[in-house]
Design a protein around this nucleic acid. Sequence first.
DNA 1: TTAAATTGTAATATTTCTGTAACAAAAGAA
DNA 2: TTCTTTTGTTACAGAAATATTACAATTTAA
Lengths: 226, 226
Amino acid sequence: MKGKIFIIEDEASIVQLVQHNLEKEGFVVSSSLNGNEGLKELKKFEPNLLLLDWMLPDLSGIDICKNIRRDSNFKSLPIIMLTAKGEEEDKIKGLESGVDDYITKPFSFNELHARIKAVLRRSDPNIVANDLTFEDLKLDRIEKRVFRADKEIQLGPTEFRLLEFFLTNPKRVYSRDQILETVWPNNVNVESRTIDVHIRRLRQSINIKDKKELIRTVRSSGYSLV
Amino acid sequence: MKGKIFIIEDEASIVQLVQHNLEKEGFVVSSSLNGNEGLKELKKFEPNLLLLDWMLPDLSGIDICKNIRRDSNFKSLPIIMLTAKGEEEDKIKGLESGVDDYITKPFSFNELHARIKAVLRRSDPNIVANDLTFEDLKLDRIEKRVFRADKEIQLGPTEFRLLEFFLTNPKRVYSRDQILETVWPNNVNVESRTIDVHIRRLRQSINIKDKKELIRTVRSSGYSLV
DNA sequence: TTAAATTGTAATATTTCTGTAACAAAAGAA
DNA sequence: TTCTTTTGTTACAGAAATATTACAATTTAA
């Protein structure tokens, strides 16, 4: 999981291309072809970044931008504008609308990807970081390896995702529901008790003799990394 | 406990959906399907926020609104109107009826939740705050931890909720009934004396030698944080 | 194709929490 | 003071939540 990206763009071909490539990169992507609906879906989707077309059939990109900035829950949502050449870059550049970056069509996916990473790195480093660390725990997303005190640890895929999830927000307590929602593939129905078992497995793997327990149980609430 | 919300809305499906989700978020929720009764129940329930349908079978939303604003006990109760599309948003927007926000149906729960948080943040910051503090007492809702004079204190779930409850309104005296209503899960029947025991347990946990007692007993009324 | 690893669940064990009852103590009322 | 009401304290049994284990089914690797 490298974060969620929402796209509002009326050219279906662009959406398709970008969405497909981003998903290949590990992002969770959702999109809308028009402004009004997009705005609603976006708020439901709660992305970590928005790709926003400058010219839309109904609402203009700026209006959407303003709307988002006014909403306290999305005040700091990073936005990258997609503009067509000749759409007065200066205007956009100088805008007070609160855009984090913009890119001119046509663009290569690599170009876009680079910008996305750059913007996300600023706003929420954990989302794009290749390495997640916490105390003497280290997780390498590229090589899919986990280390505790420099000793490599073998984890199954689910335990890996589970640890990855905890590492993006250490200390925070997550309910079993929240864990299920983000660690398990969507619409998969697993018992909430199943999480206990995976927690147990994860604990067993990452715990080293004489080192402190890293996963805290918060009775009636969930688990957290400490 | 993240505060109490009352819903007056005649579409049972909406009520059910919203109520269920709000409860999952930790709010205590009560609702009514029509205006006249709703108004009565609301005043008994004493919510921190009201979700009010604009079009009701008996009373109109505006009438309810006016009634509430006339009642000195609820003059400043935050209200979010639920309107159907085409119900002349301008009118509502410009209204002097004293609505704090409004949302157009159909809406996503996330959208509603965001607005509720925004409105509550303005009217009663403690209800949605992540950290609650009072003197040298600190409660962290995200990490589910409690500190007294910077020393962490271990609390059971019920004691935690109890303290959380007191912290949202320090100094205020709460009757046992009020405490029961908001700290205990709905429709659970426990002896009112049970609260005494939990108060005792909470006291035992948060009291530090040489530090003053934080929970005050108000004979024949209840308890409060001082 | 076989062996090894991974997953979800159910069953069982263990821990921690809760509510109540019973009695003690304190505060008001008479 | 003495009686009455309310609150404090304690201990304990049952409940609830979590931990642990084993296992069958499935997926992946060899």
